[in-house]
Design a protein around this nucleic acid. Structure first.
Lengths: 348, 348
DNA sequence: TGACAAATTTGGAACGATCCAATTATTTGA
DNA sequence: TCAAATAATTGGATCGTTCCAAATTTGTCA
């Protein structure tokens, strides 16, 4: 119906006050008389006025109440949960987010960053695509826009970071498998040459070393960090001359794949082979067998990242801080623990 | 460093032209001389100018190149995929999207819509939270902002829609189970009283009726549309006096839960019980057993919805159109088909 | 009642880009 | 060489809000 939008001036005219007064009402300033406020508010409702934030943000002082979120793979439930956590915080803080999926493409990521910048984001949270360079984030930092990198590292970038404690988590998980009596423990799935992978493998290696056990290189089987990758990895692992009896998997998706692969090979995960995942995605709890995994609480991490960014946006100054989010092992069934009632056949 | 942003005027001064010329260069107008264009572009790069879309959108003619996407549950991979499909199209069309998760809360959804409106979205794609009313979308339509509702219906809302053919998909799936020799087929999972649920149950019912089979009410076991819901539903179904031998599940998540529940009950999905899902999420293919499911291609649907919206945004006029996206049954292993040729060594 | 303080209200100039109408520079043709 | 046509450039008003300084109204107290 109305092609031309209703503005403060329209409200002012209709309510018989000046546009300045309307503006004051909009920001619920204590300066305006209650009677006037009521009258203006009534008119606003009556005319169906919609506040135009774009116009308001034009004045240079204002910061925009829009933040950007870029995630490398939204189809992965870990990152979806992460995004949902951020969304929650942003929403209750009265912010809206541009949320985009880079799909691991640095080019798309660059485009999205540029676009978000043109739209005036007040800050950015990014789970960087593989291959992201410091120069991709440089211009943001240079113009004083706070950036928080989550999950993955960007070498050389002077931005705030929030990572999970991959090393400690992996170490705990492997220690637990050792306590259960395993001595040949593999590391399955995940793409080598990523920081996260390296950190987790290092935890795996150190836990084995501290227990005086071997950590042969052929027991680290990389692949994609997905269900399909897990299937491929366990296949390779089972064909080794001395196959492992348990594995720490790169993430939960891979762990589910490992379980699938075990079943295809006639082995029951938990009973015949200990499987531990990483991340604790929602399905880990309800899967059969329930997945023992290192809980990273992606939603919580998302919330924390969002809070971190908002703090910086509000403070105005950008002082990069680095937070390592602690993780904890959640023991369920896939590792074989608590199987005392069932026949245990782990000791070969 | 630079606290004050670089504007067209700064560029103009530095390049020795007028701001109007700079503006023309920005829109790559053919009016400007090549030499001038090169000079201006150089200055733009040199000063690190960032285009301010907010300012440009102020002129009443312009439409904003921002669109809103609201999804009811981003942690569900179906909707995550849907969002990713939309993201792809929007990105290549040069749009950015506000992407928010309503988490099935109409209140949050209302807030988000209001906020997006204030930020000047050119259009909205929404997968509505349960309980969304036409009045929630009314103001958008009234101000000429095109809206596309996907997946779920909003009764009485005069907006464009894109749904999958739930009825035909369910019917095909049940027919397939009947062809495999099943006669007691349940419908498991999903929340009753939703359009999607009703349509799928109707397909189930009609397929049974056409085959002259019974469709008893106690064979429809509602629950949440999640993995946990599937577990609960199959438990209930198996405790019926005459338990079913196969089931069409509300969606893939529920189907996975049903598989889990079957295993806990000592039955192997596919071999001992036919399971068919709905949606065809990514994991359906790699799960063990691979899930037979009605393929909805969420990413494709997302892309289609985005194209639909963009068409309307560009056209300027809003003429609601309704599209029903066809689906197809993807036969894999969980239904028990093709078990004759393949010697299954699952039997322990 | 008048002087002064406090409470409200209000023009008008920003903010950064666009776009129209008008101006200036360059070609073209006879 | 000059008018007419074409190409290129430009000032200024405008979009919808905020914010300052100034103006107006209301209230208080001697």
């Amino acid at each position: 119906m109305n092609k031309s939008r209703v503005t403060v001036v329209d409200i002012a005219r209709a309510a018989g006050v000046s546009k300045s007064t309307v503006s004051l009402v909009l920001q619920s300033s204590p300066l305006v008389n209650e009677t006037t406020r009521a009258k203006v508010n009534a008119t606003i409702r009556e005319l169906g006025y919609v506040y135009n934030r774009g116009a308001a943000n034009l004045r240079q002082s204002a910061s925009s109440r829009i933040i950007g979120i870029i995630v490398n793979d939204l189809t992965n439930s870990f990152f979806a949960e992460l995004a949902v956590g951020m969304d929650m915080v942003m929403q209750s803080a009265g912010y809206v987010q541009f949320l985009s999926n880079s799909a691991e493409s640095v080019d798309r990521q660059r485009e999205v960053i540029a676009s978000m910048r043109e739209h005036g984001i007040a800050g950015l949270i990014i789970s960087p695509a593989r291959g992201t360079e410091a120069s991709d984030l440089k211009p943001l930092a240079a113009s004083g826009i706070p950036v928080v990198a989550v999950v993955r590292n960007v070498v050389g970038a002077k931005v705030s970071t929030l990572f999970s404690d991959n090393y400690a988590g992996a170490k705990d998980a492997v220690r637990h498998l050792i306590d259960l009596g395993h001595s040949r423990i593999a590391f399955l799935g995940g793409i080598a040459n990523t920081t996260v992978f390296t950190e987790r493998v290092q935890g795996w290696r150190d836990a084995l070393a501290e227990a005086g056990l071997d950590a042969p290189d052929n027991c680290v089987v990389g692949s994609t960090a997905s269900r399909a990758g897990g299937v491929a990895a366990i296949e390779r692992a089972l064909s080794l001359p001395e196959p492992p009896t348990a594995a720490l998997c790169f993430n939960d998706a891979a762990a589910f794949g490992v379980c699938d692969g075990l079943r295809t090979a006639g082995k029951e995960p938990g009973r015949d082979f200990g499987v531990v995942g990483f991340d604790d995605v929602i399905e880990a709890e309800t899967a059969v067998p329930a997945l023992t995994t290192v809980s990273v609480d992606p939603q919580g991490m998302g919330r924390r990242a969002a809070q971190m960014l908002l703090k910086q946006v509000n403070a105005g100054r950008v002082e990069p801080e680095a937070i390592v989010s602690s993780v904890r092992l959640v023991v369920r069934q896939s590792c074989g623990a608590g199987l005392k009632d069932r026949t245990r056949r782990i000791s070969a």
